[in-house]
Design a protein around this nucleic acid. Structure first.
Lengths: 193, 193
DNA sequence: GTCGGTTATGTCAATGCCGACATAGACGCG
DNA sequence: CGCGTCTATGTCGGCATTGACATAACCGAC
């Protein structure tokens, strides 16, 4: 009895996006609109969602008792809602953050392109890869300035602070872009003439 | 007139999964079942899909004229279908492979966990991260044996061969796992005592 | 001989996700 | 005074994705 229920791994009352949003609300109260902005930067470096998805998920968080809101007069046809995480929401988020990771399901279109690149025109491939190289060089440059700002105020060291985890995700971005850039330069090099 | 049509970037008759499957069919004729197997390994390193999705997408590929099949007697209540890519399918795949990449929409649950890790119990975080470290060490070891097999037969050098692009994706896997492992070891180190 | 694993294709419901559409006040610039 | 941008929340339809259910032959081991 209850064979597939316990090993499911999906016993939470919201999906991963719910925790992404709850993680923002646990830091400070926000309107749905501000959540959508922060979803682009800085959460956009590792997750993303449009505002259509965000409004629905905020409703689910409130239904689960993990977030609450107070209404404020705002522009437009609807009132502004300022959401914040409840104590139960913080507890659920803390438990989720350290719970075992499900096996990742990668979706990397760049690698899929390369895997099929043997069929394509080498010059066209070189162009596509060069554009990607430039995009990622800009991304790396951005991460490096953010890291410099962090370190100007002293390297964060306490892993139970927001400042530290922010710093850790930036370091990951730098590492990830650096290895891809090396690989892209090598690949583009094999496509010379 | 046709304002949003040209800048959409989604003018193809199948989605990305369609090209992932077509890329397998362009190499050799396959049954849907075999496609699902290859979707786990080696495509699983950069894309994934279950058989429910695969059958539907194969039907779309046939409707688009990019794949065809011949029926063969097989086990079970349905006949076996052997799919292969048509000339039009190969051409579409070659064009797609080198076309400009859409901006990626990352979904990295590990980074989302770390971003919210300041709230969690450090010992529990260390446990979760150590499990992930071990999973990725095993993954790196696997990539290294695959690379060794490639190089034993001579390092692939011609980017218009299947052997080369297979090799290129393995090198990417090695680089990607190595940088994550370094980062994970640093992170776990900050969570000591 | 039957038990379990592999081969093989399919449906279905629920959920997730995305782009487009809808509305409208506030504020600054020219 | 109007135009564009930002703030702000919401709906809707369609497609993508997942897990569960359904069916059944073939094959090797015990």
């Amino acid at each position: 009895m209850a064979r597939s229920d316990e090993r499911a791994g999906r016993m939470w009352r919201v999906n991963t996006l719910g925790f992404a949003i709850l993680g923002l609300l646990a830091r400070r109260p926000l309107s749905g609109y501000r959540v959508a902005q922060l979803m682009r930067e800085p959460i956009g470096f590792f997750w993303n969602a449009g505002h259509a998805q965000i409004h629905g998920t905020l409703r689910k968080l409130v239904e689960a008792g993990w977030a609450e809101y107070r209404t404020e007069p705002g522009p437009g046809p609807h009132d502004k809602k300022l959401y914040s995480a409840t104590a139960a929401g913080r507890a659920a988020l803390a438990e989720w953050a350290a719970s075992p990771l499900p096996t990742p399901q990668p979706h990397d279109e760049l690698l899929l392109r390369v895997y099929n690149g043997w069929l394509a025109d080498p010059a066209a491939m070189r162009e596509m890869l060069t554009a990607e190289l430039e995009r990622r060089e800009a991304s790396l440059a951005h991460y490096l300035t953010v890291r410099a700002e962090f370190e100007a105020d002293g390297t964060p060291e306490d892993p139970t602070t927001q400042r530290f985890v922010d710093y850790a995700t930036v370091l990951n971005g730098i590492g990830s872009e650096r290895y891809v850039l090396d690989w892209l330069r090598w690949l583009i090099g094999t496509l010379r003439d």
